[in-house]
Amino acid sequence: MKNNLARMTELYRTMVRIRAFEDAAQAAARAGKVVGAVHSSAGQEAVAVGVCANLRIDDVLTSTHRGHGHTIAKGADAGAMMAELFGRSTGTNGGKGGSLHIADFSVGMLGANGVVAAGLPIAVGAAQGLRLKGSEALAVTFFGDGATNRGPFLEALNWAASFALPVLFVCEDNGFSAMTRTASVTGGSGPAARAEAIGVRAVTIDGNDLMAVDHTAGELIAEIRAGGGPRFLHCRTYRLRGHTATDPARYREEAEVAAHELVEPLTLARIKLIELGAAARDLDAIEAEEFALIERAVAAAEVAAPPDPSAAYADVQDLGAPPARGAL
């Protein structure tokens, strides 16, 4: 039931949307239309989509600097997201955050984050707050393999374990800590071993296998919802692009990237869908629709109004908010 054709087809559609978004965002960044850093999650779509397929609207998630995929998978509007990258008033954040701080609280997406591992403690606290409110929702935190070398990774895992909080930790292990291979700067047996050492059940899977992510995330989330406390999902994947849109990633061989292109998640999912009986023309149509949707999002973002300069002064704080320049 769970991996039926209809479900997989819908998840494939979301993956294609994320890829289209990432490619369009990268192109816009390289063209100078999107200012500020853009970090592409191309190649990691199956993790975002497979996990979020098992979430409810009232579940919350925290994300990373590479957060477009999580935001789309949680249900945010890609048009408002693209407008945010373009710094428009119609953006998810009204032009205040850009790619690095993309967020849509209305769907429980509590924010991308410019600081590696910063989302983990926020997620465990959100879970604790939700429990205090009597909610049965849970929190998911996505983070990379690089984050496992930061202190808040340890602190948040221990916190979630100590308080038996409903949190799913999802490590998107793409092998790179920014522009350095994580293995070259990391001791021990990897993210799952670190989680297990703290008593959090951890599962390592192929994060490019959409069905595996969907299935395993579903299982772990069911355990969390049953009151089992935190769980840890370690997804091996690969970052197809550079660290940022402008990083040519010369620190890796073209052959390495080419090998990973053969097992990237959209390719694998398409093969699987055909095996399950999907018609190639239907998948072609999904791809065309999603790329067209993102093209329209870009076109709308390009012509949308920038924020009024006065908006710069809004939402700093209630008490002691800054007066507009020249007002004092």
Binding site: L120, P121, N158
Partner: peptide, 15 residues
Amino acid sequence: AAIMGAAVGAALVGT
């Protein structure tokens, strides 16, 4: 870090 970070998350969900 977790004390402060958790408080941020808990505040964001309304506590």
